[in-house]
Design a protein around this nucleic acid. Structure first.
Length: 466
RNA sequence: GGCUGGGUGGCAGAGUGGUUAUGCAGCGGACUGCAACUCCGUGUACACCGGUUCGACUCCGGUCUCAGCCUCCA
């Protein structure tokens, strides 16, 4: 039996994962607010939870994975205003861009991608229930969640109400009964997007969308809720409080999983700091798998130092895995899609670290061991066995999805074409046969200058773009 | 100030009470006309100070230090 252990923010420790219903495992991850291109830091939860879901699907017959799109937000309003375009057009454009970026990183599409604007009714219903339950109050067009009414408030982020009073920077507003109360609904002006509600034309607060969409699509208690560690407080704390109170349930999320941040130098990569690298921009220089490898090179709960060096190392590391596949071609037809393959058929050395709180660095280390085995395989059976193991492990991590030859020769449209390269290689080999090594080296230098590296093998000359 | 989590070799990054993960980079060798690819070999580590222990990088205490959250944020 394969047992999955996950670090649960709720308990602060690693726990054995046991879903509420083995036949219906529910996962929700906080997606982006769509007002701009997302940065590579936003890509981390996308990739991490993609690996988790791939693994869960091997362990359980049915997994329902939802990742939301936040398309109501004051930053969206501001960006649309600045661009002089409609809020919806802007949100749609960046939703599209986000989907493109995630696909580039090899992230499998979630089963459900709920959008906040499509769930206003559900949010209003939930807010009404909170008012009826005595956990929320309407005041001056606002509806506020009554934090002191929730006895469990603070249980997720591990802070007491007293902790929060110390040095609190919460906004004190006249419509709040308690400074910690947070907004469920707020009034909109004519320029702001607004919806009819029992409290006037307005729009929802930040946290309520997740609560309402989870209840609608996944249920009152879900197994896993993921997101960045910077969402733990206040977002997830508030979300959990309102869901517990609205659902009359003590258990909202069984396992809270939070990924740590990417850093630039010593500091967190963050839009507000401005030290971000968008996936869109990185995609012009690096393949999606390289970026994905770089993201997986650190365990998700550790911060990861993002740098050009890191990506370069990821590129070289990934190339060595592909090189093993390229050096040892398949001896028979092999599958590339392992989505239907049973967990037993995957290499244990890759699966075991993943079952232990998604230890992707150790899983990648195992991948390199498998690549070394492949390089040293002495007969066709051993080659095929090692290849299959490497491919399967790669599938679980979302890597090695490309044909190795294509991986090394793709791209570089602005330099030499493949046929030009082939012609030059042929000319060089003729020169070499005639012992005209000066001419041969001249051609090799010419190709090197164009970013083409040659590898003379027994079977012939092979090339790759550097 | 409160709450979290860290400090590992040139870089990234796992892990373990006693056999120097892994990758990238470096160095030596084999292969090669020379290279590249590949293979073989190889060096540099566990912030600091105490304690527990036959033995600690790993456990405990303290010090210094870094980051995250407490405001939007993946």
């Amino acid at each position: 039996m394969h047992q999955l252990y996950l670090h649960n923010t709720l308990s602060g420790r690693k726990e054995l994962f046991k879903p509420l219903d083995e036949h219906r495992v529910t996962v929700y991850v906080c997606g982006p607010t769509v007002y701009n291109y997302v940065h590579i830091g936003n890509g981390r939860p996308g990739v991490v939870f993609d690996v988790l879901v791939r693994l869960l699907r091997k362990l359980y017959p049915r997994v329902i994975y939802a990742r939301n799109i936040t398309d109501i937000d004051d930053k969206i309003n501001a960006a649309a205003l600045a661009n002089r375009e409609s809020i919806q057009a802007l949100a749609d454009r960046y939703t599209q861009a986000y989907n493109t970026d995630m696909a580039y990183l090899g992230v499998t599409e979630p089963d459900i991608t709920p959008r906040a604007t499509h769930h206003i009714t559900e949010m209003i219903d939930m807010i009404s229930q909170l008012i009826d339950n005595g956990h929320a109050y309407a005041n001056d067009g606002h509806v506020m969640f009554d934090v002191p009414s929730d006895p469990h408030y603070g249980s997720l982020s591990g802070r007491s109400l007293q902790d929060m009073i110390d040095g609190a920077r919460v906004e004190i507003a006249p419509y709040k009964k308690d400074p910690k109360d947070f907004v469920l609904w707020k009034p909109s002006t004519a320029e702001q997007p607004g919806w009819e509600s029992p409290w006037g034309i307005g729009r929802p607060g930040w946290h309520i969308e997740c609560s309402a969409m989870i209840r609608k699509h996944l249920g009152r208690t879900i197994d896993i809720h993921g997101g960045g560690s910077d969402l733990t407080f206040p977002h997830h704390e508030n979300e959990a409080a309102q869901s517990r109170c609205a659902n009359h349930s003590t258990e909202y999320v069984r396992y809270w999983i939070h990924n740590n941040m990417l850093t630039m130098g010593q500091e967190k990569m963050s839009k507000s700091v401005g030290n971000v690298q968008t996936i869109n921009a990185l995609a012009k220089q690096y393949s999606g798998e390289v970026l994905r490898y770089a993201l997986l090179s650190g365990q998700y709960r550790s911060s990861l130092a993002w740098s050009q060096d890191l990506v370069a190392q990821a590129q070289a590391s990934l190339a060595s895995l592909y090189q093993a596949l390229r050096d040892n071609p398949a001896t028979l037809d092999e599958p590339l899609d392992f989505s239907q393959t049973s967990i037993e058929a995957f290499p244990k050395t890759v699966v075991s670290p993943l079952l232990d709180d998604l230890n992707t660095p150790e899983a990648l280390a195992a991948m390199h061991e498998l690549a070394a085995e492949l390089q040293k395989a002495v007969n066709p059976e051993a080659v095929q066995r090692a290849r299959t193991a490497l491919r399967a492990g790669g599938w679980l991590l979302g890597l090695l999805n490309t044909d190795p030859d294509a991986y090394f020769t793709a791209g570089g449209s602005q330099s030499l074409s493949n046929s030009e390269i082939d012609d030059l290689i042929e000319a060089r080999n003729i020169a070499r046969q005639n012992k005209d090594f000066a001419r041969g080296d001249q051609i090799r230098d010419l190709l090197a200058a164009a970013g083409i590296e040659l590898e003379d093998l027994r079977e012939g000359t092979r090339w790759r773009r550097s």
